[in-house]
Simulated scan of single mutants.
Amino acid sequence: MRFLVVGAGALGGYFGGRLLQAGHDVTFLLRPARAAQLAASGLVIHSPAGDLHLASPPTVLAHQLQPHYDVVIVGCKAYDLDETIASFAAAVGPETVVLPLLNGLRHLDTLTARFSYRRVLGGLGLISATLDETGAVLHLSQDHTLAFGELDGERTPRVEAIAAAFAQAAFVGRLSDSILQEMWEKWVHIATIASITTLMRASIGDIVGAGADGLALDLLDECSRIAAHNGFAPRPEAIARTRATVTAPDSRLTASLLKDIERGAPTEGEHILGDFLRRGRWSTADTILLPVAYAQVKSYERQRAGRAALLHA
Protein backbone atom coordinates (compact mmCIF):
# COMPACT_ATOMS: atom_id res chain seq x y z
CA MET A 1 0.00 0.00 0.00
CA ARG A 2 1.46 3.35 -1.12
CA PHE A 3 0.86 6.34 1.16
CA LEU A 4 1.30 9.97 0.15
CA VAL A 5 1.42 12.20 3.23
CA VAL A 6 0.77 15.82 2.31
CA GLY A 7 3.14 17.88 4.41
CA ALA A 8 5.49 16.91 7.22
CA GLY A 9 4.28 19.27 9.91
CA ALA A 10 3.28 18.11 13.37
CA LEU A 11 0.38 15.95 12.20
CA GLY A 12 1.69 14.57 8.91
CA GLY A 13 5.23 14.28 10.23
CA TYR A 14 4.15 12.23 13.21
CA PHE A 15 1.73 9.78 11.60
CA GLY A 16 3.70 9.55 8.34
CA GLY A 17 6.93 9.02 10.27
CA ARG A 18 5.41 6.22 12.31
CA LEU A 19 4.14 4.51 9.14
CA LEU A 20 7.58 4.80 7.57
CA GLN A 21 9.16 3.45 10.76
CA ALA A 22 6.89 0.39 10.42
CA GLY A 23 8.25 -0.30 6.94
CA HIS A 24 5.40 1.06 4.84
CA ASP A 25 5.77 2.76 1.47
CA VAL A 26 5.41 6.42 2.49
CA THR A 27 6.29 9.57 0.56
CA PHE A 28 5.95 13.10 1.94
CA LEU A 29 4.68 15.77 -0.46
CA LEU A 30 6.51 18.92 0.64
CA ARG A 31 7.18 22.51 -0.20
CA PRO A 32 10.79 23.22 -1.17
CA ALA A 33 11.84 24.74 2.17
CA ARG A 34 10.58 21.80 4.23
CA ALA A 35 12.06 19.34 1.73
CA ALA A 36 15.46 21.01 2.10
CA GLN A 37 15.15 20.92 5.89
CA LEU A 38 14.38 17.18 5.93
CA ALA A 39 17.18 16.50 3.46
CA ALA A 40 19.60 18.20 5.83
CA SER A 41 18.45 16.92 9.21
CA GLY A 42 16.01 14.09 8.53
CA LEU A 43 12.59 13.67 10.11
CA VAL A 44 12.92 13.85 13.88
CA ILE A 45 10.16 12.93 16.34
CA HIS A 46 10.40 13.39 20.11
CA SER A 47 7.60 11.46 21.78
CA PRO A 48 6.56 9.70 24.99
CA ALA A 49 5.93 6.71 22.70
CA GLY A 50 9.58 6.68 21.65
CA ASP A 51 11.85 9.03 19.74
CA LEU A 52 12.49 8.54 16.05
CA HIS A 53 15.07 9.85 13.59
CA LEU A 54 14.59 9.01 9.92
CA ALA A 55 17.70 10.25 8.13
CA SER A 56 16.37 10.30 4.58
CA PRO A 57 12.56 10.11 4.41
CA PRO A 58 11.23 9.88 0.84
CA THR A 59 9.98 13.27 -0.32
CA VAL A 60 8.52 14.73 -3.49
CA LEU A 61 7.60 18.21 -4.72
CA ALA A 62 4.24 18.87 -6.35
CA HIS A 63 5.61 19.15 -9.89
CA GLN A 64 7.39 15.79 -9.47
CA LEU A 65 4.29 13.76 -8.51
CA GLN A 66 3.61 10.57 -10.41
CA PRO A 67 0.31 8.69 -10.23
CA HIS A 68 -0.95 6.85 -8.37
CA TYR A 69 -1.05 6.37 -4.61
CA ASP A 70 -3.43 4.17 -2.66
CA VAL A 71 -3.98 6.61 0.22
CA VAL A 72 -3.40 10.37 0.39
CA ILE A 73 -3.30 11.63 4.00
CA VAL A 74 -4.08 15.35 4.23
CA GLY A 75 -3.52 17.35 7.41
CA CYS A 76 -3.24 20.98 6.28
CA LYS A 77 -4.85 24.09 7.77
CA ALA A 78 -8.37 24.66 6.48
CA TYR A 79 -7.48 27.96 4.81
CA ASP A 80 -4.78 26.16 2.77
CA LEU A 81 -7.08 23.41 1.50
CA ASP A 82 -7.62 24.68 -2.06
CA GLU A 83 -3.89 25.18 -2.60
CA THR A 84 -3.18 21.79 -1.01
CA ILE A 85 -5.68 20.01 -3.26
CA ALA A 86 -3.99 21.53 -6.30
CA SER A 87 -0.65 20.24 -5.05
CA PHE A 88 -1.68 16.59 -4.69
CA ALA A 89 -4.44 16.18 -7.30
CA ALA A 90 -2.07 14.51 -9.75
CA ALA A 91 -1.52 11.68 -7.26
CA VAL A 92 -5.21 10.73 -7.15
CA GLY A 93 -6.04 7.84 -9.44
CA PRO A 94 -9.20 5.77 -9.97
CA GLU A 95 -8.64 3.72 -6.79
CA THR A 96 -6.97 6.34 -4.60
CA VAL A 97 -8.67 7.33 -1.35
CA VAL A 98 -8.15 10.69 0.33
CA LEU A 99 -7.98 10.63 4.13
CA PRO A 100 -8.27 14.20 5.50
CA LEU A 101 -7.46 15.03 9.14
CA LEU A 102 -8.80 18.58 9.21
CA ASN A 103 -11.13 19.96 11.88
CA GLY A 104 -14.81 20.54 11.21
CA LEU A 105 -16.64 19.13 8.18
CA ARG A 106 -16.55 21.78 5.49
CA HIS A 107 -13.46 20.20 3.93
CA LEU A 108 -15.49 17.06 3.17
CA ASP A 109 -17.77 19.10 0.91
CA THR A 110 -14.75 20.53 -0.91
CA LEU A 111 -12.97 17.20 -1.30
CA THR A 112 -16.02 15.21 -2.41
CA ALA A 113 -16.89 17.91 -4.95
CA ARG A 114 -13.36 17.68 -6.38
CA PHE A 115 -12.71 13.91 -6.21
CA SER A 116 -16.20 12.35 -5.68
CA TYR A 117 -17.81 10.94 -2.55
CA ARG A 118 -16.40 7.47 -3.24
CA ARG A 119 -12.78 8.64 -3.02
CA VAL A 120 -13.00 10.46 0.33
CA LEU A 121 -12.87 8.99 3.83
CA GLY A 122 -13.66 10.63 7.14
CA GLY A 123 -10.81 11.01 9.59
CA LEU A 124 -9.52 12.80 12.64
CA GLY A 125 -6.29 12.98 14.58
CA LEU A 126 -6.32 12.95 18.36
CA ILE A 127 -2.84 14.18 19.18
CA SER A 128 -1.13 17.19 20.71
CA ALA A 129 1.97 17.95 18.67
CA THR A 130 3.94 20.86 17.27
CA LEU A 131 7.17 21.61 15.43
CA ASP A 132 10.10 23.08 17.35
CA GLU A 133 12.50 25.69 16.00
CA THR A 134 14.62 23.00 14.32
CA GLY A 135 11.68 21.43 12.51
CA ALA A 136 11.48 18.38 14.80
CA VAL A 137 8.04 17.02 15.70
CA LEU A 138 7.30 17.34 19.42
CA HIS A 139 4.61 14.92 20.58
CA LEU A 140 3.29 16.53 23.76
CA SER A 141 0.93 13.96 25.31
CA GLN A 142 0.13 10.27 25.50
CA ASP A 143 -2.63 10.49 22.86
CA HIS A 144 -1.69 9.61 19.31
CA THR A 145 -4.82 8.25 17.67
CA LEU A 146 -5.79 8.39 14.02
CA ALA A 147 -9.45 7.44 13.62
CA PHE A 148 -10.92 6.96 10.15
CA GLY A 149 -13.70 5.25 8.25
CA GLU A 150 -16.03 5.30 5.29
CA LEU A 151 -18.40 8.26 5.41
CA ASP A 152 -21.39 5.87 5.31
CA GLY A 153 -19.93 3.62 8.03
CA GLU A 154 -19.47 0.60 5.74
CA ARG A 155 -16.61 -1.83 6.42
CA THR A 156 -15.02 -2.01 2.99
CA PRO A 157 -11.92 -3.94 1.91
CA ARG A 158 -10.01 -0.69 1.43
CA VAL A 159 -10.55 0.59 4.97
CA GLU A 160 -9.79 -2.86 6.34
CA ALA A 161 -6.50 -2.79 4.42
CA ILE A 162 -5.66 0.66 5.79
CA ALA A 163 -6.49 -0.53 9.31
CA ALA A 164 -4.14 -3.48 8.88
CA ALA A 165 -1.32 -1.13 7.82
CA PHE A 166 -1.98 1.25 10.71
CA ALA A 167 -1.97 -1.65 13.17
CA GLN A 168 1.73 -2.18 12.44
CA ALA A 169 2.68 1.42 13.28
CA ALA A 170 3.49 2.94 16.67
CA PHE A 171 0.27 4.92 16.98
CA VAL A 172 -3.37 4.00 17.59
CA GLY A 173 -5.08 3.53 14.24
CA ARG A 174 -8.78 3.02 14.80
CA LEU A 175 -11.27 2.05 12.11
CA SER A 176 -14.61 3.63 12.98
CA ASP A 177 -18.08 2.58 11.86
CA SER A 178 -19.37 6.04 12.86
CA ILE A 179 -16.65 8.45 11.80
CA LEU A 180 -19.07 11.30 11.08
CA GLN A 181 -20.42 11.05 14.63
CA GLU A 182 -16.86 11.20 15.96
CA MET A 183 -16.01 14.15 13.72
CA TRP A 184 -19.06 16.07 14.94
CA GLU A 185 -18.13 15.33 18.55
CA LYS A 186 -14.59 16.58 18.00
CA TRP A 187 -16.00 19.65 16.25
CA VAL A 188 -18.23 20.43 19.25
CA HIS A 189 -15.19 20.00 21.52
CA ILE A 190 -12.93 22.25 19.46
CA ALA A 191 -15.57 24.91 18.76
CA THR A 192 -16.36 25.16 22.47
CA ILE A 193 -12.71 25.57 23.49
CA ALA A 194 -11.92 27.89 20.58
CA SER A 195 -14.90 30.11 21.36
CA ILE A 196 -14.35 30.47 25.11
CA THR A 197 -10.58 30.97 25.03
CA THR A 198 -10.86 33.43 22.13
CA LEU A 199 -13.66 35.40 23.80
CA MET A 200 -11.84 35.57 27.11
CA ARG A 201 -8.30 35.84 25.64
CA ALA A 202 -7.26 33.45 28.40
CA SER A 203 -6.45 29.83 29.19
CA ILE A 204 -9.08 27.44 30.51
CA GLY A 205 -7.54 27.58 33.99
CA ASP A 206 -7.69 31.38 34.07
CA ILE A 207 -11.29 31.32 32.85
CA VAL A 208 -12.24 28.85 35.56
CA GLY A 209 -10.35 30.90 38.14
CA ALA A 210 -12.33 33.97 37.12
CA GLY A 211 -15.58 32.10 37.71
CA ALA A 212 -16.47 32.13 34.01
CA ASP A 213 -16.50 28.38 33.34
CA GLY A 214 -20.31 28.60 33.20
CA LEU A 215 -19.92 30.51 29.95
CA ALA A 216 -17.87 27.63 28.55
CA LEU A 217 -20.64 25.21 29.51
CA ASP A 218 -23.19 27.48 27.84
CA LEU A 219 -21.08 27.35 24.67
CA LEU A 220 -20.92 23.57 24.91
CA ASP A 221 -24.72 23.52 25.09
CA GLU A 222 -25.06 25.80 22.07
CA CYS A 223 -22.65 23.71 19.99
CA SER A 224 -24.30 20.46 21.09
CA ARG A 225 -27.74 21.71 19.99
CA ILE A 226 -26.41 22.54 16.53
CA ALA A 227 -24.84 19.08 16.24
CA ALA A 228 -28.15 17.50 17.34
CA HIS A 229 -30.01 19.59 14.76
CA ASN A 230 -27.81 17.92 12.13
CA GLY A 231 -28.52 14.43 13.49
CA PHE A 232 -25.28 14.00 15.43
CA ALA A 233 -26.09 14.81 19.04
CA PRO A 234 -22.91 14.27 21.08
CA ARG A 235 -22.96 11.10 23.14
CA PRO A 236 -22.81 11.37 26.95
CA GLU A 237 -19.14 10.38 27.10
CA ALA A 238 -18.23 13.10 24.57
CA ILE A 239 -20.14 15.73 26.54
CA ALA A 240 -18.44 14.57 29.75
CA ARG A 241 -14.98 14.84 28.14
CA THR A 242 -15.56 18.40 26.98
CA ARG A 243 -17.14 19.44 30.28
CA ALA A 244 -14.09 18.11 32.12
CA THR A 245 -11.76 19.94 29.73
CA VAL A 246 -13.41 23.36 30.05
CA THR A 247 -13.80 23.21 33.83
CA ALA A 248 -10.26 22.04 34.71
CA PRO A 249 -9.03 24.61 37.26
CA ASP A 250 -5.29 24.38 36.56
CA SER A 251 -5.41 23.91 32.79
CA ARG A 252 -3.11 26.06 30.65
CA LEU A 253 -5.00 24.97 27.54
CA THR A 254 -5.83 27.54 24.89
CA ALA A 255 -7.17 26.87 21.42
CA SER A 256 -4.93 27.03 18.37
CA LEU A 257 -7.38 29.66 17.11
CA LEU A 258 -6.35 31.98 19.95
CA LYS A 259 -2.67 31.19 19.41
CA ASP A 260 -3.06 32.19 15.76
CA ILE A 261 -4.69 35.49 16.72
CA GLU A 262 -1.98 36.24 19.28
CA ARG A 263 0.75 35.83 16.69
CA GLY A 264 -1.11 37.74 13.98
CA ALA A 265 -1.60 34.70 11.75
CA PRO A 266 -4.53 33.55 9.60
CA THR A 267 -7.10 31.49 11.49
CA GLU A 268 -9.48 28.61 10.89
CA GLY A 269 -12.32 30.65 12.38
CA GLU A 270 -14.45 30.38 9.25
CA HIS A 271 -14.01 26.60 9.14
CA ILE A 272 -14.48 25.94 12.87
CA LEU A 273 -16.98 28.61 13.98
CA GLY A 274 -18.58 30.14 10.90
CA ASP A 275 -19.46 26.85 9.26
CA PHE A 276 -20.77 25.54 12.58
CA LEU A 277 -23.22 28.44 12.82
CA ARG A 278 -24.37 28.01 9.24
CA ARG A 279 -25.31 24.40 9.97
CA GLY A 280 -27.68 25.39 12.78
CA ARG A 281 -31.09 27.06 12.84
CA TRP A 282 -29.93 29.48 15.46
CA SER A 283 -31.45 32.65 16.85
CA THR A 284 -30.36 35.08 19.53
CA ALA A 285 -32.83 33.39 21.85
CA ASP A 286 -30.91 30.12 22.08
CA THR A 287 -27.50 30.70 20.45
CA ILE A 288 -25.86 33.77 21.95
CA LEU A 289 -22.17 33.23 22.63
CA LEU A 290 -21.13 31.35 19.50
CA PRO A 291 -22.12 34.22 17.16
CA VAL A 292 -20.19 36.65 19.37
CA ALA A 293 -17.07 34.44 19.25
CA TYR A 294 -17.38 34.16 15.47
CA ALA A 295 -17.86 37.92 15.10
CA GLN A 296 -14.75 38.54 17.17
CA VAL A 297 -12.67 36.28 14.92
CA LYS A 298 -14.13 37.89 11.80
CA SER A 299 -13.27 41.33 13.21
CA TYR A 300 -9.70 40.17 13.80
CA GLU A 301 -9.46 38.85 10.23
CA ARG A 302 -10.74 42.16 8.88
CA GLN A 303 -8.19 44.10 10.94
CA ARG A 304 -5.43 41.76 9.78
CA ALA A 305 -6.43 42.21 6.13
CA GLY A 306 -6.49 45.98 6.60
CA ARG A 307 -2.98 46.00 8.05
CA ALA A 308 -1.73 43.83 5.20
CA ALA A 309 -3.28 46.20 2.63
CA LEU A 310 -1.54 49.18 4.25
CA LEU A 311 1.81 47.38 4.15
CA HIS A 312 1.44 46.72 0.43
CA ALA A 313 -0.01 50.11 -0.48
Score class of each variant (00 low, 15 high):
34 R>N: 05
28 F>A: 00
21 Q>M: 09
42 G>V: 06
44 V>P: 03
28 F>T: 04
43 L>H: 01
17 G>S: 08
32 P>V: 11
40 A>F: 08
24 H>I: 03
21 Q>G: 06
50 G>E: 11
22 A>R: 02
49 A>V: 10
27 T>M: 15
30 L>D: 05
40 A>E: 14
45 I>K: 09
33 A>V: 13
37 Q>A: 13
47 S>I: 05
34 R>F: 07
29 L>Y: 07
25 D>F: 01
46 H>T: 12
28 F>E: 05
40 A>G: 13
44 V>F: 11
53 H>V: 05
26 V>R: 04
47 S>A: 08
43 L>D: 00
36 A>Q: 09
39 A>Q: 08
48 P>T: 13
31 R>Q: 03
35 A>H: 11
33 A>P: 06
35 A>G: 12
26 V>L: 02
50 G>T: 11
29 L>N: 07
35 A>D: 11
27 T>I: 07
32 P>H: 13
43 L>K: 03
38 L>N: 12
52 L>I: 15
41 S>W: 09
52 L>D: 01
35 A>P: 00
39 A>C: 04
34 R>M: 02
17 G>H: 02
36 A>E: 08
50 G>L: 12
52 L>Y: 07
24 H>Q: 09
44 V>C: 12
22 A>S: 07
34 R>V: 15
35 A>K: 15
17 G>T: 04
18 R>M: 09
42 G>K: 11
26 V>Q: 03
44 V>E: 04
53 H>Y: 12
28 F>W: 08
24 H>P: 00
49 A>N: 15
22 A>Y: 10
45 I>P: 03
48 P>D: 12
39 A>V: 11
34 R>E: 12
44 V>K: 04
30 L>K: 05
39 A>W: 02
20 L>R: 03
41 S>K: 07
31 R>N: 10
32 P>D: 15
22 A>G: 03
28 F>R: 00
30 L>F: 13
49 A>M: 14
45 I>H: 11
44 V>L: 04
46 H>L: 14
47 S>R: 00
26 V>I: 07
21 Q>R: 04
42 G>P: 05
46 H>W: 09
24 H>Y: 00
38 L>Y: 10
39 A>T: 03
53 H>W: 11
51 D>L: 15
23 G>A: 09
52 L>K: 05
53 H>P: 06
19 L>V: 02
49 A>P: 14
52 L>W: 12
26 V>A: 01
21 Q>L: 03
44 V>G: 00
49 A>G: 13
50 G>I: 13
42 G>H: 00
23 G>I: 00
49 A>E: 14
30 L>V: 14
30 L>H: 08
41 S>A: 14
35 A>N: 06
21 Q>H: 05
30 L>W: 07
20 L>N: 03
53 H>G: 10
20 L>P: 00
21 Q>K: 02
43 L>E: 02
30 L>T: 04
23 G>N: 05
31 R>W: 15
17 G>W: 05
42 G>Q: 05
40 A>T: 10
45 I>Y: 01
20 L>V: 12
43 L>A: 07
46 H>R: 13
47 S>T: 05
49 A>W: 14
24 H>C: 01
38 L>M: 10
27 T>K: 12
29 L>I: 07
32 P>F: 00
52 L>P: 06
52 L>H: 05
49 A>I: 15
18 R>W: 06
24 H>T: 04
35 A>S: 12
21 Q>A: 08
34 R>P: 10
36 A>T: 02
53 H>I: 11
51 D>M: 14
23 G>T: 01
31 R>G: 14
48 P>K: 01
